[in-house]
């Protein structure tokens, strides 16, 4: 499912809203979530999961073309931990 398919599905369900408002709604949510993470803020959605940042320590890397060593600075990367309900619903083994 792509972003535009998500918008179409939501527009079908939320038939009282204009398609353009649904589009704006989805884009607003994604922008707000990205901005929160970029500011180092966690996101917690019960039953869906939580997003947080993980720190990657500085390390020596290598230019794959020349083989030359390059110093890579420490950085943060986004991390998602699925919530219980999402974990159970995607796993075909769980009974509920």
């Amino acid at each position: 499912m792509t972003k535009s398919e998500l918008i179409d599905r939501l527009a079908e369900q939320q038939s009282h809203l204009h398609h353009l408002d649904v589009e704006l709604g989805v884009k607003t949510i994604l922008e707000q979530m990205s901005t929160a993470l970029a500011a180092g803020e966690r996101i917690e959605v019960r039953g869906f999961g939580s997003f947080s940042l993980h720190y990657r320590a500085p390390r020596m890397g290598r230019n794959p073309k020349t083989g030359e060593p390059v110093a890579l600075p420490g950085k943060h990367v986004p991390h998602f931990k699925p919530g219980k309900s999402l974990r159970e619903r995607v796993d075909y083994n769980s009974d509920d």
């Binding site: 500011a39 974990r87 796993d91």
Partner: peptide, 23 residues
């Protein structure tokens, strides 16, 4: 089992990389 993983896109990655918080 089947599990969900999240792969952040390039745009989100670079926005988050710029965050200077305590490691």
């Amino acid at each position: 089992r089947r599990v969900v993983t999240f792969r952040p896109g390039q745009k989100l990655r670079s926005r988050v990389e710029a965050y200077v918080g305590s490691g």
